[in-house]
Simulated scan of single mutants.
Amino acid sequence: MYNDMMKDLKDKMQPVVDITEINKKAAEKLFALQSACMTDLFNSSIAQMKALTAVKEPKSAVELQVQFFKTLESKLTNVAEQEIATLTEAKDQLSEIVEKSITEMSELPTNQFGDFSKFTDMSQFADFSKFTDFSKFADFSKFTDLSKFADLSKFADMSAFTAAPVVEEAEKKAPAKAAPRKAAAPAATTAA
């Protein structure tokens, strides 16, 4: 049973393994292309600098630069085309795997996941209509006369209060601390 389960898991995970392998190969090819391009660019730039130092006339220097940039453009275009071809090939392979997986999923028998119709029948749940009458909670008639409460408008102007006098008044009202009392000596007992 364990072997069957592992084989089934391996079969189910095979598309993920294939996708990972395709991405790995594409990334390796792109890294190799970029590395070769940078090496070639570095070497050709050094060679161009050496060639420019040997030139005595400005016209020859301009011609060397034009030739260098034409060669550079063709090399970069070639690398870009190879990268696009690599990405397109990887995309096509990935699309094929995804389409195959979707086709296999659509071919699964519908009863494989069990009968979910029992979860769509809401009649088995309690009748919640009795909880929609909130009228007994919305009766605020008892609270309509607020004249019993003090006028709070006098508390709106807080500029009359400062922190320092409040602290001083609290210190004045606090009772003085009494000196700690010494414990009385134990009474002498006489021996009979």
Rank of each mutant, 00 (worst) to 15 (best):
Q65F: 06
Q65W: 03
Q65Y: 03
V66K: 15
V66W: 07
V66F: 09
Q67F: 05
Q67E: 15
Q67K: 15
F68I: 01
F68Q: 04
F68P: 02
F69T: 13
F69Y: 15
K70I: 03
K70P: 04
T71W: 02
L72S: 13
L72V: 07
L72I: 06
E73C: 01
E73I: 08
S74Q: 14
K75I: 02
K75A: 14
L76A: 10
T77F: 10
N78H: 11
V79P: 01
V79W: 01
V79T: 14
V79I: 11
V79S: 10
V79M: 09
A80D: 11
E81R: 15
E81P: 02
E81L: 14
Q82K: 11
E83L: 04
E83C: 13
I84R: 08
I84W: 06
I84Y: 06
I84V: 08
A85S: 13
A85I: 00
T86S: 12
T86C: 06
T86L: 00
T88C: 01
T88G: 01
T88Q: 13
E89F: 09
A90P: 01
A90W: 03
K91P: 00
D92Q: 11
D92G: 08
Q93H: 00
Q93E: 04
L94A: 02
S95P: 01
S95V: 09
E96A: 14
E96P: 02
E96M: 09
I97P: 02
I97T: 08
E99D: 14
K100R: 06
S101D: 02
I102Y: 05
I102G: 00
I102P: 00
T103N: 05
T103G: 05
T103H: 05
T103D: 03
T103E: 02
E104G: 06
E104S: 07
E104H: 03
M105C: 04
S106Y: 04
S106P: 00
S106H: 06
S106L: 07
E107W: 05
L108Q: 13
L108P: 07
L108W: 05
L108M: 12
L108I: 05
L108N: 14
L108F: 05
P109H: 04
P109Y: 00
P109T: 01
T110R: 08
N111A: 10
Q112W: 09
Q112F: 09
G114S: 02
D115F: 00
